[in-house]
Each structure stands twice: as structure tokens, then as C-alpha cells.
């Protein structure tokens, strides 16, 4: 798929817009990393992990009768991990420092997740039509 540079662009834009963001990854729900933008190369495997946790969150939300889960936020001693649904087949996982503006992280994370979902959806359509 030729969509990868577009997704990488979107991740770079997201990193520029949200101060204290230390990593951003997009992964398919199959765990395959589509694109990553981070200062910490060893953190890329977290993207697949993020998919697993969001799927667990989805089951939790569903079991609690709260409908589909769109995102989760984990607050650790050393910072935050957040994940946002990026369309039906991908997940955007973000790493951030403890002093990040969580309000902004959510706003930009949701917007970026939706944008990546559109990019991937468009690529899938082109693939089907070719």
C-alpha cells in the first residue's frame, strides 16, 4: 500500500502539534505496524501492544454495556500511554511525558485517529477498485 508516507506525515504533524509527545504509532488491528514516529526506536513494539489493550478495552466497554470503546488512557509514573481507534482496522498509539496537556492529547489524538482511518479506508477502496 502507498498510504504509508501519508500516515507518517500525519504522525509527524501530530508530534509537531502536541508538545511533550514522545512517540506516535499506527498499527493495524492484526498487530502490523503501519507507521511510527518516535525518538525511541525500541518503543515500536508498543504499537501492537496498544492494539491488544484497545481490543481488551473494547470488550470491557461492551461487557459493561457502554458500547464500543474508541480510546484508552493509561497514566503511569513516567508518563502516559494513549490509544485511539483509527477507523475500523487500525489503532493510533501515543506516548507522552507526565506533563503533557491531556486535554490537547485527546483532541489531537481523536482527530488524527479519524484522519488515519480515512487514509487507510481510501487506500483499501483504491485496492479494491484496481
Amino acid at each position: 500500500m502507498t498510504v504509508e508516507p501519508d500516515v507518517l506525515d500525519e504522525l509527524a504533524r501530530l508530534r509537531a502539534r502536541v508538545p511533550r509527545l514522545t512517540g506516535a504509532f499506527a498499527a493495524g488491528t492484526d498487530g502490523r505496524v503501519l507507521a511510527g514516529d518516535t525518538t525511541d526506536a525500541a518503543a515500536a513494539h508498543l504499537a501492537a501492544f496498544g492494539v491488544d489493550v484497545l481490543e481488551a478495552a473494547l470488550r470491557l466497554s461492551d461487557a459493561a454495556g457502554q458500547g464500543l470503546a474508541h480510546e484508552f488512557l493509561v497514566h503511569g509514573e513516567g508518563g502516559y500511554v494513549a490509544a485511539y481507534a483509527a477507523g475500523p482496522s487500525a489503532v493510533l498509539t501515543l506516548l507522552a511525558e507526565p506533563r503533557v496537556n491531556v486535554g490537547r492529547l485527546h483532541l489531537e489524538g481523536r482527530r488524527s485517529g479519524a484522519r488515519i482511518g480515512e487514509l487507510l479506508g481510501g487506500a483499501l477502496e483504491r485496492l479494491e477498485n484496481s
Binding site: P19, N101, G103, R104, H106, L107
Partner: peptide, 13 residues
């Protein structure tokens, strides 16, 4: 107002 909350947090910081 949630956008305002996040944006003005940056102003204050």
C-alpha cells in the same frame, strides 16, 4: 469549551 480548556492551558503554562 473543551478545546478552549486545552488551548488556554498552554496559554497559562
Amino acid at each position: 469549551l473543551n478545546v478552549a480548556a486545552a488551548g488556554n492551558t498552554d496559554v497559562v503554562r
